[in-house]
Design a protein around this nucleic acid. Structure first.
Length: 581
RNA sequence: GCGCCUGUAGCUCAGCUGGAUAGAGCAACUGCCUUCUAAGCAGUGGGUCAGGAGUUCGAAUCUCUUCAGGCGCGCCA
């Protein structure tokens, strides 16, 4: 119905004298017709007169009066009123007003989806946690967010690919391998354990599995490996890694791939349990080696060199990122010939762009924001539009249990893992709380609240509405064997108690489209909370099943639509609606 | 020092490309279960939207500035 209103408005605009085409287009661009906040303002409202007035330097109220007359003459609406500083409020004809519930019931699980992103492909890269241990609570937020915007964009018609970037080529993996190595040989090494190695119990588990499967023999000389290691904890572990690689190279490679696959398996399982799926897992190591001339990483750097953006200084290769707004240039290849993490990332982003996506979304932890400029610079340097890349920052979540902050650190092994969280409150409640606040804001995740039985707990408040509807529908079906096909009593206006609910439902498509264009799933959560409130209020005021047969039929038809709204909204967040509680 | 983010009720937060009297939950106080799920509903009180200036018919929203808080600034990943 908004489309039909806008058509009338456009006709009105083009009938205005003294309106140039450029300002006509500007007005068209800027004005908006929306569903009103509440029924006291009618069903639809438009601010076009205020927008047009500022362009034309005319009185908005006079314009509104003119438009009002036009709209009344069109006979398309029940009532047209001017209000406030120049709003036009529209009351729809009854049949148009209730068309919303017909649409919802008809489109069912497709209601709210659109083809806004038709023929556009978006790639979302998220989580991408280093494969050095299980996912912790901090990763959960990025996982929930990336997955949710994936679902939302998909429902808006975009072709979406979700990707996990596996950092399997850096020093962190060496430390992981060394940690497992030490655990395998801990007896021979008399309990020695480097200060900077991973201490989590999963390391010992992996070591144990390795021993069972590969039955490794004794080391050639275990003591020499740990003799006179440097005191400094960073140097100690680096030296240890070097020694193991030299002395036990075959074993090293074997343990490395074993540990990596075990950790990745854990991560995949955690994500699966969290209802997060990826379409593609991309390994950093697949970018190849700097020594190979045709590897992706070599080619990317060569391309930057050819463009004169990468240069040599002090024995290292640098990328000029200052010209793109960074505060200093960055090293791609160290003076000892090893590539930096940044170099891999440049090659990785080149690869992603080469794959032909219209847009790339990176979901990063907020601590990486200093990194955005240089990655944009590299994209620009490679000859791509930096607008193609959209970095969404996700702030860390602090976890509170019984009023105390829960500490997190992968290194020390003292952390609350994502799977702990899932065990504690369940996948759906966890996803819900992660998404309940704008992603780039700090989130205090209160475990006690997430389990609470009160309205403060939005998750159950919304689910409760769904469960209550399901219960009513079940009762209805048991007595009538089939669902009603229309809402006659609501349509002819003899029963109006559902009107608020219907009006609220008509806002849903707009909410989804806003969530989609702003990449903010929390908008859906807050809408659902408001919607649940409208339902609970209705439920308290109306003893549904004691109404007349005709009214019951109409109400059930409306409530089925309400159920679809709740279920679709939760679905976009990757949450299953609860049928009974 | 530079960069990014934030400041809305006692607390936790919503607030749409600027729009109509600034919203919700919690906490406080009042009511509502012999009837479909009380994890619910209805009501009362509570605000200089951090301060100041500007743009505008109109500012919590945009711009500038001051103050306060958080984070980031490696040839780490």
């Amino acid at each position: 119905m908004i489309g039909s209103l806008n058509d009338e408005i456009d006709i009105f605009l083009s009938s205005l004298t003294g309106l140039e085409e450029s300002s006509f287009n500007q007005i068209k661009e800027r004005y908006s017709s929306t569903v009103t906040d509440d029924l006291s303002k009618g069903h639809l409202t438009t601010n076009v007169c205020m927008i047009a007035a500022s362009q034309l330097k005319k009185n908005p109220k006079e314009l509104a009066d003119k438009l009002q007359r036009k709209l009344i003459d069109s006979r398309k609406f029940e009532k047209v009123e001017t209000a406030g500083p120049g709003f036009i409020n529209i009351t729809l004809k009854r049949e148009d007003f209730i068309s919303t519930i017909d649409n919802i019931n008809l489109q069912s699980s497709n209601f709210g989806s659109s083809n806004h992103g038709k023929d556009q492909s978006i790639q979302i890269e998220f989580v991408s946690a280093n494969p050095t241990g299980p996912l912790h609570v901090g990763h959960g937020r990025g996982a929930a967010y990336g997955d949710a915007i994936g679902r939302i964009l998909k429902s808006s018609g975009y072709k979406v690919q979700k990707e996990y970037y596996i950092n399997d080529a850096g020093r962190q993996i060496d430390i992981l391998t060394a940690s497992v190595f030490i655990r395998i040989y801990e007896e021979g090494l008399k309990g020695y354990f480097p200060k900077n190695a991973y201490k989590g119990s999963y390391i010992s588990d992996i070591a144990k599995l390795f021993k069972e499967k590969h039955k490794p023999g004794n080391l050639i000389d275990s003591r020499i490996l740990i003799k006179d290691l440097p005191q400094d904890e960073e140097k100690e572990i680096d030296e240890l890694i070097l020694r193991i690689k030299n002395k036990e190279n075959k074993l090293w490679i074997k343990i490395k791939s074993f540990a990596l696959s075990k950790v990745l398996q854990t991560i995949r399982t955690d994500l699966e349990n969290f209802n997060v799926s990826f379409d593609n897992w991309f390994s950093e190591s697949s970018l190849g080696d700097l020594n190979a001339n045709d590897s992706k990483i070599s080619l990317a750097i060569k391309s930057l060199k050819n463009k004169g953006l990468a240069y040599e200084e002090n024995g290292a290769i640098w990328l000029n990122t200052i010209d793109s707004g960074d505060d200093k240039n960055r090293v791609l290849i160290r003076d000892d010939g090893r590539a930096t993490y940044f170099a891999s990332d440049v090659a990785y982003h080149k690869d992603k762009i080469d794959r032909g996506f219209n847009k790339l979304i990176n979901v990063w932890g907020a601590d990486h924001h200093g990194y955005i400029k240089r990655i944009e610079a590299s994209i620009k340097g490679l000859g791509f539009d930096k607008e193609k890349l959209d970095v969404q920052l996700v702030q860390f979540a602090n976890l509170y249990k019984d009023g105390n902050k829960v500490k997190m650190s992968t290194r020390s092994g003292e952390f609350f893992s994502l799977s702990d969280l899932i065990n504690e409150i369940g996948t759906d409640a966890a996803r819900f709380y992660y998404l309940s606040k704008q992603a780039d804001q700090h989130l205090d995740f209160d475990l006690n609240l997430a389990k609470a039985d009160s309205k403060e707990n939005m998750f159950y408040y919304i689910q409760y509405a769904h469960a209550r509807i399901c219960s009513l529908l079940t009762k209805y079906i048991n007595e009538n064997s089939s669902m009603p096909k229309m809402a006659t009593a609501v349509a002819n206006g003899s029963y109006k108690n559902c009107d608020k609910l219907i009006h609220e439902m008509s806002k849903y498509p707009n909410v989804v489209s806003r969530a989609s264009s702003s990449l903010q799933p929390h908008l859906i959560i807050f809408y659902l909370k408001d919607f649940a409130h409208f339902f609970h209020s209705f439920y308290n005021d109306n003893q549904v099943l004691t109404e007349s047969k005709e009214n019951i039929e109409a109400i059930i038809y409306c409530l089925n639509a309400a159920k679809i709204i709740l279920s679709n909204g939760l679905g976009l967040l990757g949450i299953k609606p609860i049928e009974k509680m």
